[in-house]
Design a protein around this nucleic acid. Sequence first.
DNA 1: CCCTGTCAATTGGTAATACCAATATAGTTT
DNA 2: AAACTATATTGGTATTACCAATTGACAGGG
Lengths: 231, 231
Amino acid sequence: MELQVIKTDRLYIKVAQQLSKLIRDGKIKPGERFPAERDLASQLGVSRPTIREAMIALEISGIIEIRTGSGIYVTGKKPTLYTIDRGVGPFEILEIRYIIEAEACALAAERITETQLAQLRTALREMEEEEKQEDATEKADWKFHSIIAEASQNSAIYLVVNWLWELRNQSVLSTSFLESIRKEGIHPSLNDHKRILEALEKRNPERARIAMKHHIDNATSAAAAHFGPEA
Amino acid sequence: MELQVIKTDRLYIKVAQQLSKLIRDGKIKPGERFPAERDLASQLGVSRPTIREAMIALEISGIIEIRTGSGIYVTGKKPTLYTIDRGVGPFEILEIRYIIEAEACALAAERITETQLAQLRTALREMEEEEKQEDATEKADWKFHSIIAEASQNSAIYLVVNWLWELRNQSVLSTSFLESIRKEGIHPSLNDHKRILEALEKRNPERARIAMKHHIDNATSAAAAHFGPEA
DNA sequence: CCCTGTCAATTGGTAATACCAATATAGTTT
DNA sequence: AAACTATATTGGTATTACCAATTGACAGGG
C-alpha cells in the first residue's frame, strides 16, 4: 500500500480554476475583459496578490492577456502547452512535425467535417493572399495546420501541434531562422497545401499522410539547404 | 511593413528566467534548496511578492517544488509542458502515443547509446520488480519510455512524451481508469518491452517501430476491453 | 461639428509590512 | 538514545501604499 502525500491546493490554484471556469462557461467571452483585479479580489474574498498569482497561471496558459493600465482580456485561445526553457531546435521541430502532423492528417482524412473542409479552403485562400505580401506572418499557414489537427479529433494532437507552431514562432532561434528563409523568398508551398486539401476532400488517409510528409520534407529540405542539417 | 507591439517583459518573468538559469548552470542542483524567498528578494533587489510570482511560473513548469514551512527545492525534472484545462481522454493519449512513441523508437534504434541501452535494461529489471508488487506505480514503465524518447535525440519528442505520461498520471479520468486496469490485473506486458529492447539492441528501426506499435496496440486493446472504445 | 489636447479616473505593476501556519532544528528530559 | 517541547525559519495570504499605463470625459480651437 502506497500512501499519497496529502497536499491541499494553494489558494491561487483554486482561484485560477474558478476563473478559467468562468471562461469555459462562457460567462466571459473572448475579447471581453475581466473585472478589475481589485473587484475580483473583493468578489472572491481573497487578496489582490492572490488574484495576481492566479492570473499569472492563466496568462502563461495563454487563455488571458494582461494589458497594463487597460485590463485583463480573454484571448479566446485554447489553453496551450507551455515550457519556460525552450531549447528545441528548428530541425527538431520539423522532425516531430513530420511524425505527428502526417498521422494527424491521416486521421483527419477519416474524421474531417464539411465545415472544417470549408475552413481549410478559406485558410488556403488567405495563404494565397499572404504570399503576395512582403512580410507575411504565416498566420494562415498555422491556421491551415491547426484545422487539420482539430479535424484529427484528438485533443492531445491538437495541443501538441499548436504548441509546436507557437514554439516555432516564439523561439528566438527559430524566428531568426524563419526570417532568413523569408528574406530568401522561400515560402510554404501552396501546391503542397493544395494536395493536402485534395487528399482530405477525397477522405483518403494514405494520400493525406503522404501529402503531409511530402510537404514537411520540402520544408525541411529548404531549411537544410539554407542552414545545413545540423542546426 | 508590419509594426510590432512593444511589450516589455514583466519583472516576474525576468526573475523566473534568472532563477531557472541558476538551475541550468548547476548553481542549485536537483534536491537542493533555494535560498528563502526573503533572502532571494534581498539579493535580487525585488519584493517578496515578485519572487513568489516568479516561483509560480517555475512551479508549474515543474522544475521546482514548493514545500510550506520547509523551502523551495529543485526537482531535477526537465521543464515540462503544462496545461491547465486537461480534457484529454485516455484513448486520445494512447492514440498519440501510438503515433509518436513508435517513431521515437525507430529514431532511437538509430541513435541510442550504450549507456542508454544499459539504462533500459535497468528499467526493465525494475519493471519486473514492480510487477511483483500489488499497487506498483509504473514509475519504471515511464522511465523505460522516457529513456527511449531521450534516445531519439529530439528534445521536442522528449518533452511531448513526458508530458503525455504526466498527463496520464495526473488526469483524474486517466488515473481512475488506470486504477481499474490495475485492479483487474492488467499490467504492462514485460514481453512487449523485452521485444522493444531487443530491437533497440539490434539497432533495427523497423523492428523497433513495429514492437512499440504492437505494445501500444496491446495497451489500447486492454483498455478498450475494459471500458469500451469511446471513453 | 470634428479633432486635438489635457486631466482625472481606472487599471495593472511592484513594494513594504504584517500575521498565520507548516516544518525543521536544537535543547531538554526521561 | 529516544521522545518531547520550544523556538526559529520557512512559505502562504493579506493589507496598504505608491507608481506607471491606459482610457474616457471634457474643453477649446479650427
